[in-house]
Design a binder for these strands. Structure first.
Length: 574
DNA sequence: GCCGTTTTCGGCCCGACTGTTTTCAGTCG
């Protein structure tokens, strides 16, 4: 039978939740399916393996009933319960509820009264002013529906962390410059440093909420105002990115920041714990339930202290075990940007980079690094001006000389060796042996079958000169899916051959992703965080790689390039 | 449907904004 990916199971669970909602089922049952979908989507291990071992119920959020349905899916290729549900609900309604502003109740009402069962029919009805006749709906409802359909079709999807981070920073600066604003900052998934961000959340501490909101919605980058109230506003920028703004009193800034940083699942867990302790948490503070006394909160750490747990950094707030760890005092001591001692994957103008080696070295010195590796492309990557054997040897000599002269930083001679479609590397062993560091990666044959591309990378890992596999899954966020590579096999090979795996820090890649990073670290695999910069300005993107490492629960000791110069050179010799 | 330092039954986070209402339901985060 065809292989069923985790994400497909998650989609089915989400769809069951939608179908149940359209049937008016219990909100708790719906929530249970949604929670299971989320849990499955963020699982790094193969669900099919868990199923074959009968361990589905070890996943928090999966109980007896859902485990049974997943097992059924793997055994028979379908879930009878799900098929029955689909048969009972007009299929177009699932599409209708994807329109922002339309939920299950409205979709049901529109179907029963007007027979609407597709987005096209919904649009026609709104344009034909047929909806305003329904109870509780008016002409503004029709406008909202049309706006929602437009948003849906314009594909207000997600943007990379790099884009979101830059935009959040720009708006934060703008808000800070306004009179009456005491504090401003970005919250939401951008603060949690997720690799893809749906919209930007901003929090402002000010006593003049109305004034701040009025100016905010008039910002030249704002294309549309979706909502505007006393304390909140929601807009869409010209670039099509949604921004939510929340303004609170300065003394509520940190509880609001915490609330809007999320994740939602993390917050729910905290509120449940608060509830049991006789407390209540919302965006305005931490309160005693009995008399509404407000407990002092001078920073986010105080919130966790009131709940009797360790401070949880934003990158971990996903309800993936961090709450339990914080209560037990077993949170990881996360790696920090300052722990990074060098960048092991950089391109110069010898291949397709824009800067000279001297410029790269200069920037590395500025960043306080102890070492930097020059890893230009190998010969078969003609499009990237990959180096011939002669050019490579010439560069090698050049780098050795420069290293003598420079002194203040170790320049490692390296190569990003292409893994050819048959699994061979781009140069013979004696060439690779001469390099301080060999980074191997796939740049072609992205569509190879799972076995083939997996075996190809593993055969490269068997080569004792290969130190790191770069961007192991090949994904480009929002633009190109990962190859069909079997990461469990790659992890096993990394353990067997002692190969490090890369977190490519470019916000276009962030590959490995957070989940794989965590899984790899559990298996004891060394991770290297590299920028793959083709431009010295992008050496600053190290912070995104470190953030991804933190999201994967990595400590300093898990990361190869936190080693000092001597330790790293020793490591590379082995 | 899930879950268990109050529980194997009975809970299950909390609030803002909107539109169409005269007090609230629906939607969203």
């Amino acid at each position: 039978m065809r292989r069923i990916e985790n994400i497909e199971v998650a989609w089915i669970m989400g769809e069951i939740a939608d179908l149940l909602e359209l049937q008016g089922e219990s909100v708790f049952k719906i929530r249970a399916y949604r929670k299971a979908a989320k849990a499955i989507a963020s699982l790094a291990t193969d669900l099919s393996e868990l199923a074959s071992r009968g361990e589905l119920e070890t996943v928090p959020g999966i109980g007896k009933a859902i485990a049974g349905k997943i097992a059924e899916l793997f055994n028979t290729g379908e879930i009878e319960y799900y098929e029955n549900l689909k048969a009972q609900v007009p299929p177009g309604l699932l599409e209708v509820i994807t329109v922002p502003g339309i939920g299950a109740r409205m979709a049901q009402e529109l179907y029963q009264k007007l027979g609407i069962s597709s987005v096209d029919e919904l649009e026609a009805a709104a344009r034909g002013r047929k909806i305003r006749g329904l109870p509780g709906m008016g002409n503004k409802t029709e406008m909202n529906i049309l706006r929602g359909i437009e948003m849906l079709r314009s594909g207000t999807g997600q943007v990379t962390l790099g884009i979101a981070d830059a935009m959040a920073e720009a708006f934060t600066g703008f808000l800070k410059s306004l009179p009456g604003v005491e504090e401003a900052g970005a919250a939401g998934s951008a603060r949690r440093m997720k690799d893809a961000v749906g919209d930007i959340d901003l929090v402002v501490g000010s006593y003049e909420a109305e004034r701040v909101i009025e100016i905010f919605v008039k910002h030249p980058q704002v294309k549309k105002v979706l909502a505007k109230g006393d304390t909140k506003a929601r807009v869409v920028t010209l670039a099509g990115i949604g921004i939510d703004l929340m303004v609170v009193g300065p003394e509520q800034y940190w509880t609001a920041m915490h609330h809007f940083t999320g994740s939602k699942e993390h917050n729910v867990r905290l509120r449940e714990i608060a509830h049991k302790k006789g407390l209540k948490i919302n965006e305005y503070g931490v309160f005693r339930r009995d008399d509404d006394t407000r407990l002092p909160v001078a920073g986010e750490a105080d919130i966790y202290t009131h709940l009797g747990m360790e401070y949880i950094p934003p990158e971990l707030r996903e309800d993936l075990g961090e709450v339990e760890a914080a209560m037990n005092g077993t949170l990881p001591d996360l790696v920090e940007t300052g722990d990074i001692k060098g960048d092991l994957h950089i391109h110069s103008d010898w291949s397709d980079g824009v800067n000279s080696i001297e410029e790269i070295v200069g920037r590395a010195v500025e960043m306080g690094y102890e070492y930097v590796a020059i890893t230009d492309h190998s010969k078969s990557l003609g499009i990237a001006r990959g180096l011939s054997v002669e050019r490579l040897e010439e560069q090698e000599r050049y780098l050795r000389e420069l290293n003598e002269k420079t002194g203040q930083i170790e320049i490692l001679t390296g190569i990003e060796a292409d893994i050819l479609s048959n699994g061979d590397l781009d140069y013979p062993d004696e060439i690779l042996a001469a390099k301080d560091i060999v980074v191997a990666s796939v740049h072609s044959g992205f569509r190879q079958e799972r076995e083939k591309i997996t075996g190809r990378v593993i055969s490269a890992m068997k080569n004792k000169h290969v130190d790191i596999v770069a961007h192991p899954t090949g994904r480009l966020i929002g633009r190109r899916d990962p190859y069909a590579i079997d990461m469990e096999e790659i992890f096993a090979a990394a353990v067997k051959y002692g190969t490090a795996l890369e977190i490519n820090a470019s916000p276009d890649r962030l590959d490995l992703n957070d989940r794989y990073v965590r899984r790899a670290a559990e298996l004891g695999i060394r991770i290297s965080i590299n920028t793959d910069a083709h431009d010295i300005n992008r050496m600053d993107e190290m912070k995104y790689g470190v953030a991804t490492a933190r999201r994967g629960w990595l400590e300093k000791r898990d990361v190869l390039n936190t080693l000092g110069k001597e330790e790293l050179l020793d490591y590379l010799k082995k």
